[in-house]
Computed example of a mutant assay.
Amino acid sequence: MDARVGVVLVSHSAGLADGLRDLLAQLGGGAVTVLPAAGTADGGLGTSYELIAGAVRAADGGAGVVLLADLGSSVLTARTVLEDEPGEGRVLVDAPLVEGAVAAVVAASTGAALAEVVAAAEAAREFRKF
């Protein structure tokens, strides 16, 4: 199988990210690496530089990685990781966590390139529920 864009879910809550990962695994048919980088190293609520950095490295199969974050400090921590550990094709996307991740994984599962996956996730800002 060709390399697919990976997805990292940056959240304050491991439970939230794990549940979303389970949903995305079904939507992506198992073709996309989706990794949570959520909570603190000791299992609490918060963000962890080390968890995010490790997930980004692990999700990078050669086609790039899209990061989606839930709240303010998760965005700041993800940005810091990307500044400290720059790499080609690592993009923090300004999109809602759930809808953006769904759009990203669906696009990535088709073999879409990084720019297309980023665009799909960003377009999720405009999704209307009714």
Rank of each mutant, 00 (worst) to 15 (best):
E122L: 07
T110W: 12
G46P: 06
T33N: 05
G28A: 06
D18M: 06
H12T: 08
A120V: 10
V5H: 01
V91N: 05
F130M: 13
L71T: 14
D42P: 01
S109P: 03
S73N: 14
A107H: 06
G19Q: 12
L45C: 04
E88L: 14
Y49M: 05
E83G: 08
A104E: 01
G44I: 06
G54C: 09
D60W: 02
F130L: 15
D84W: 13
L27G: 09
A53W: 05
E122T: 14
A115W: 01
L27A: 09
A17N: 00
G64N: 06
S74Q: 14
G29P: 06
E50R: 14
D18V: 12
Q26R: 13
V56W: 07
T40V: 09
G111L: 06
T77W: 04
A59C: 11
A38H: 09
G64Y: 03
D84R: 15
R90H: 13
I52M: 07
G100F: 10
G39H: 02
S11M: 03
L92W: 09
A55C: 10
D22S: 15
D22K: 09
D42I: 01
G72K: 10
R4C: 00
V65W: 00
V34L: 07
R4L: 00
T77D: 04
A59E: 03
G39L: 03
L68G: 01
L23Q: 06
S11H: 00
L114W: 11
D2A: 12
A103V: 03
V93T: 15
A37F: 05
I52R: 02
L45N: 01
A107W: 10
L114T: 13
S109G: 15
D42H: 08
S109I: 04
T80A: 13
A38M: 12
A53K: 15
V81G: 03
E50V: 15
L23P: 04
A107C: 12
G28K: 03
L76W: 00
L92Y: 06
L71E: 13
E99N: 10
V117S: 03
L92H: 12
G19D: 09
P96V: 09
A107K: 09
A53V: 12
D2G: 03
L71N: 13
D2K: 11
L67Y: 09
L68E: 03
A107S: 15
Q26F: 13
L92E: 08
R79G: 13
L97G: 05
A107M: 11
A41S: 12
S48Y: 04
E126V: 09
D84I: 08
V81N: 02
S11F: 00
P36E: 04
V105D: 02
A69W: 10
A121K: 03
L97C: 09
P96N: 10
H12I: 08
S73R: 13
E50K: 10
V105C: 08
G61M: 07
Y49C: 02
V118I: 05
E122D: 10
T110L: 14
A112H: 10
V5W: 00
P96T: 12
A17D: 01
G44V: 11
V81L: 08
